[in-house]
């Protein structure tokens, strides 16, 4: 067991302790702080595993962006409000499922560890290698799609975050913008309107009226021509 192992064990233990804190501590702020701690420890493990770039990303995105978002929402809602939320329920069944996951995961872990060839041709990750994949060849399209996903998430957040969450139908929209959503009747002019009355008594909006009038005029002009 060398130094790297000892360090990794230590970091792993810290990660677990912090994760336990996330799950078990009542205070949301404390949970968030524990989460930050676990992210930092994981970042260290990534470093030891030989992924320096990813370790940096972990800290930048998780600790820097996501956790700030969490804390921002917590503060927005108010720490006192969150304190009123009950801690947990269904803990028996939840623990049972978590335990089952542990057992199954352990079995899978052993399989995975024994299956891995003792390949120590230490190819370490480099930024150039990752960039090559993401920007030049291999995963360029998925990476672009990820960008679209993020954009979609952004739009979703803006919509969901609107203060007015009332459901609005097309008809509402139409009413507010003053036009009749019914299909326009333009095929036939009114059969007979000698006294000049509009046969489309029900269709009182402008477009149809205008259409009917136009058709009627056309009719009249035909008669005049005769």
């Amino acid at each position: 067991m060398n130094f790297a192992d000892i360090l990794a064990y230590t970091l792993g233990a810290a990660t677990l302790a912090a994760a336990l804190g996330v799950v078990l501590r009542r205070d949301a702020v404390v949970a968030a702080m524990n989460l930050v701690l676990s992210f930092f420890c994981l970042s260290g493990i990534y470093l030891i595993l030989g992924f320096p770039f990813l370790a940096a990303i972990q800290i930048l995105v998780y600790a820097g962006a996501i956790m700030v978002l969490f804390l921002f929402v917590i503060m927005l809602l108010g720490v006192s409000t969150l304190a009123r939320t009950p801690v947990g329920a269904r803990s028996g069944l939840g623990a049972a499922i978590a335990l089952a996951v542990v057992v199954e995961g352990a079995v899978l872990s052993v399989k995975l560890a024994s299956g891995a060839a003792a390949n120590t041709a230490a190819t370490t990750e480099t930024v150039a290698g990752v960039s090559e994949l993401l920007f030049k060849q291999g995963l360029v399209l998925p990476f672009e799609i990820t960008g679209v996903v993020l954009l979609a998430a952004m739009v979703a957040v803006v919509v969901i975050g609107r203060r007015d969450l009332r459901v609005r139908s097309v008809a509402d929209f139409a009413r507010e913008h003053a036009f009749d959503p019914r299909p326009l009747v333009t095929s036939m002019p009114p059969p007979a309107a000698p006294d000049g009355l509009d046969a489309h008594g029900l269709h009182t909006n402008g477009i149809i009226k205008n259409n009917a009038r136009a058709a009627g005029e056309h009719h009249n002009s035909e008669e005049i021509a005769k």
Partner: peptide
């Protein structure tokens, strides 16, 4: 497993 436990049992 801790994530699952938290997901299933925490109400916040």
């Amino acid at each position: 497993a801790l994530g699952i436990f938290g997901f299933l049992t925490r109400r916040n």
